[in-house]
Each structure stands twice: as structure tokens, then as C-alpha cells.
Amino acid sequence: MEYWRKSIRLDGWDYRFPSFYFITICTKDRIHYFGEIRDGVMGLTEQGCAAWYFWDQIPDHFDNVKLDAFVVMPNHVHGIIQIIPNENGSHSVGTLHATSLQNTGLNNRMSEISPKPKSLSAAVRSYKSAVTRWCNAKNYEFSWQSRFYDHIIRSQKSLDNIRLYIEMNPRNWESDQEHSINSQF
């Protein structure tokens, strides 16, 4: 029996398309690897510093990405990623080639579910991988939740509200713990 998880991405949306995206990535089992909040201020562990550092490195690896507001919380990160058009004003469209699986249904399925080059999912996968590799190299116990949450930001008002939410997140941590971190959008 084949089992494929349904994607939580917006059906029909090309995540290589220029837009602002609000991202939340959680640690596995929401373990507090990244530090703790005291009096509304986030104190980072070394893993939290790595999470911050590697987020800042994303544009060095993805020339179609600009970063906006970002915060590291004890068990998750929130950030805004902007996918920008290339120099001629269009967005990048890449293809994946799975040569060892050519002409098979599995090849088609893997192409469908794999992150496309220069896509939001490719950037997030690269980020998660960099943090995980760093933690493993330092012998820290660490693991991400397998998926991530995204919200396509469609207006300036929404962008402003999300920026404020990210900025205020450490100060609102105590009251926010009782609610889903994604419930406000």
C-alpha cells in the first residue's frame, strides 16, 4: 500500500512565484532547543545562535530570496521570506531530473513532491539541513518537525501585522503558549 502525505501547501500555487511568505518551522516535539524567554527577551543557546546565523545565510545560497522580519523562539522560528523576480522581471522555473527513475510512475511522483529549484520549500529545506548538520557536528541532540507552516502574504496590511507579530512574539510568549502558534493568520 502506498502512503503519500497530502501537501499542506496551497494547491495550484507556484512557490517560486515572487511574493512575501510567512514561515514557521518547529522543532520536533516542540522541544526547547533554541533557548528560553525571560521577561519577554529571548536568550539563545548555541543551537539558537546557529538557527539565527543560518537563517541570515539563506540569500547567500538563493539569489532570488530576500529576508524580512525573523525571530528565534525556544521551540520554533518565525520569518518572512520574499521570493523576488530575476533580473528580467520573471520568476525562475526549474525542473528536476531523476535519471535513475526515468519513465516510471515513481519518477513522476517524486518530481511532484520534491521541492523545485529556487522555491520556498527548497530554501526552507536547505536552512533546516544547515542547522541540523551544524548541531550534529557539535554533537547536540536536535531535530526539526518534518513539515513547516507557510502563509502567502497578500497585502501590505497583512505584511505589517505579521512583522509586528514576529517582533512581539518573545514578549507574548507566556500568553501564546496556550494557543497554536499558527492560529492568528
Rank of each mutant, 00 (worst) to 15 (best):
Leu10Phe: 07
Ser7Gln: 10
Thr99Gln: 00
Val93His: 07
Ile25Asn: 13
Phe22Leu: 08
Lys6Asp: 00
Thr27Ser: 11
Asn86Glu: 14
Ile83Gly: 09
Phe148Cys: 12
Pro59Met: 06
Lys66Ser: 14
Trp173Lys: 10
Lys118Ile: 00
Gln184Asp: 11
Pro170Trp: 13
Phe185Pro: 05
Asn103Glu: 07
Leu120Trp: 07
Asn161Asp: 13
Met168Phe: 14
Gly89Ile: 04
Trp144Cys: 12
Arg38Met: 10
Asn108Gln: 08
Pro18Thr: 09
Lys138Gln: 15
Thr104Trp: 00
His91Asn: 15
Arg125Val: 03
Thr99Leu: 00
Asn107Ile: 00
Asn139Gly: 00
Gly48Met: 05
Tyr33Ala: 01
Glu46Pro: 02
Tyr15Met: 11
Asn88His: 11
Ile58Leu: 13
Asn86Phe: 12
Met110Pro: 00
Val93Asp: 02
Glu178Asn: 07
Trp173Cys: 08
His97Gly: 00
Glu46Val: 05
Tyr165Cys: 13
Gly43Lys: 14
Lys66His: 14
Pro18Cys: 07
Ile152Trp: 08
Ser92Asn: 13
Ser143Met: 10
Pro115Trp: 05
Phe22Thr: 05
Gly79Phe: 01
Ser143Lys: 10
Asn103Trp: 09
Gln177Gly: 04
Pro59Leu: 09
Pro74Thr: 03
Gln177Ala: 07
Asp176Asn: 15
Arg133Ile: 05
Asn161Ser: 11
Gly12His: 14
Phe70Asn: 10
Glu2Lys: 04
Val77Lys: 03
